[in-house]
């Protein structure tokens, strides 16, 4: 009975890992398609960023990247300790990321880089807003587990971070 009790959760854990990987594969396809759309639009544009586009505030976006990175690290730390504060910190940092993103969108909209102002603003807004929804989903799951993150959540969180870094590099830096 003890042997069985220890293997069932392990098998379940594996099931879930497989499921999560497939889900992340699907989500990766989604972001890949969005990035493909961006790549095609960019390849078709005679100049990029389109003429008349103000410079992109890379610094602010980089700061957000650091916040999300910190959230991910905090979540990883939470896995290796029994204390609650790293997970709470991760949640706070994740929420801070969303707030900072919202602030960034406001700022961009004010400087003609918001949605409907031009191709660069369109791309950044669509990609980052859709990404923010995934961060939000991660926060919801973290809240649902009462800040006791499962290992799978950290994998999801890593994925969200990687997606963000790719978006940041592709849209803001290149």
């Amino acid at each position: 009975m003890t042997a069985a009790a220890s293997t069932v959760p392990r098998r379940r854990e594996l099931d879930r890992a497989v499921g999560l990987l497939i889900f992340l594969g699907a989500t990766a396809m989604l972001f890949a398609a969005l990035l493909l759309a961006y790549a095609i639009l960019r390849a078709e544009a005679p100049v990029w960023p389109p003429a008349g586009t103000p410079p992109f505030p890379r610094g602010a976006a980089a700061a957000n990247t650091v916040v999300l990175l910190a959230a991910t690290l905090a979540l990883r730390a939470a896995r290796s300790t029994d204390r609650r504060w790293p997970a709470l910190a991760a949640a706070a940092l994740g929420a801070a990321f969303l707030v900072l993103q919202a602030a960034l969108w406001r700022r961009l909209a004010a400087t003609h880089l918001g949605p409907s102002a031009g191709a660069l603003g369109d791309v950044f807004f669509a990609l980052s807003a859709f990404h923010a929804l995934h961060v939000l989903a991660g926060l919801v799951v973290l809240a649902a587990t009462r800040a006791r993150p499962a290992r799978l959540l950290t994998i999801y969180w890593d994925f969200v971070l990687i997606v963000w870094i790719v978006i940041y590099v592709a849209v803001c830096l290149l």
Binding site: G25, A26, T27, M29, L30, A33, L34, A37
Partner: peptide
């Protein structure tokens, strides 16, 4: 693999 492309 491909429904996400439609979703995009």
């Amino acid at each position: 693999l491909f429904v996400p492309v439609l979703a995009a």
